[in-house]
Simulated scan of single mutants.
Amino acid sequence: MLRTSALVLALFISGCTSVATSPRPMDYYSPGQPESAGESLFEPVKNSLADDTIKRILDYRLALPAQNRVAVLKLSSNSYWRYYSDDFTQLNEDIASNFIGRLQASDRVYDASFLPSLLVPEQRTLPFLREAAARYQADLLLAYRTQCRTFEKYRLINPDETRAHCTVEAVLLDTRSGTVPFSVVSSNQFSAKKDSQDNNFSETIRKAELAAIGQSLAETADRLTEFLAQAEAL
């Protein structure tokens, strides 16, 4: 069985970066400005936002429940590698379990789970995603997508080695207000060498990509829990 830790021997990660949203400082708001009551700030259907609506959104002071349900949605499609073998299926499940576990470790999160596929709208725009999160009674929706790029130059040097760059981009949607108060982009570069157990070099690349994605997702969860720890409570 493959495990994330088992890939460490063949995987060398470097240049890790994680850039996340910072909470607004308290002195940003005008003295005496009332706290938010969790009301919706967006009209159901609108071609464009009026100036006064934009001002209300910018002046909105985020406050979250003491305990929150976080619905998670992966926007990028799953690769066929997910079901390539039992090992790959287990590795994907380990990555998802670690990601969810880190979110649930937050004192501000009572539940973190993937948004059921039956609720995922065909049009993945913010209004429809917000409605899906509301139906799931999720206070927050964490949507993310992954992307990996392999540097072909390194195969010219050694056909059994690769180097690539993987990124996880995530945004947090507050279901009550419709605002996006948090975003994070976590990137990792990695190099890997073909293992004797790999059937082909493509398998080597994909295993290394999954390990790098797993690390980026872990960093994403950590940045979000830090953000939630600083958010005001309703």
Rank of each mutant, 00 (worst) to 15 (best):
M1T: 12
T4K: 05
T4E: 12
A6Q: 11
V8P: 01
L9N: 09
A10M: 09
L11R: 04
L11C: 10
I13P: 11
G15R: 05
G15Y: 01
S18Y: 00
T21F: 03
R24A: 15
P25M: 10
Y28S: 08
S30E: 15
P31T: 14
P31E: 14
P31Q: 15
P34D: 12
P34Y: 07
E35H: 09
E35R: 13
E39W: 10
F42M: 13
E43R: 15
P44F: 09
V45W: 04
S48W: 05
S48G: 10
L49S: 10
D52L: 10
T53H: 13
T53F: 08
I57A: 07
I57Y: 04
Y60L: 13
Q67G: 10
R69K: 15
V70W: 06
L75I: 00
S79P: 01
Y80W: 11
W81N: 02
R82N: 04
R82W: 02
S85Q: 03
S85C: 01
D87M: 02
D87E: 12
Q90N: 06
D94S: 14
S97W: 01
N98W: 01
N98F: 01
F99E: 04
I100S: 03
R102W: 07
L103N: 05
A105V: 02
R108C: 09
R108F: 11
A112H: 05
S113G: 02
L118I: 05
V120M: 02
Q123T: 09
L126I: 14
R130Q: 10
E131H: 11
A133T: 09
Q137W: 02
L140V: 08
Y144S: 01
Y144A: 00
Y144V: 01
T146G: 04
F151P: 03
E152Q: 14
I157C: 01
A164Q: 04
H165V: 03
C166W: 02
V171K: 00
L173R: 03
R176P: 04
V180L: 13
S183C: 07
S186E: 05
S186T: 11
S187T: 15
N188P: 03
Q189W: 12
A192L: 05
K193N: 09
S196K: 09
Q197F: 09
D198A: 07
S202E: 12
I205P: 00
I205N: 07
I205C: 05
R206T: 08
L210F: 04
A212R: 00
I213L: 06
L217Y: 04
A218S: 15
T220R: 01
A221T: 10
D222G: 07
D222R: 10
R223H: 12
L224W: 00
L224D: 00
T225I: 15
A229Y: 07
A231S: 13
L234W: 06
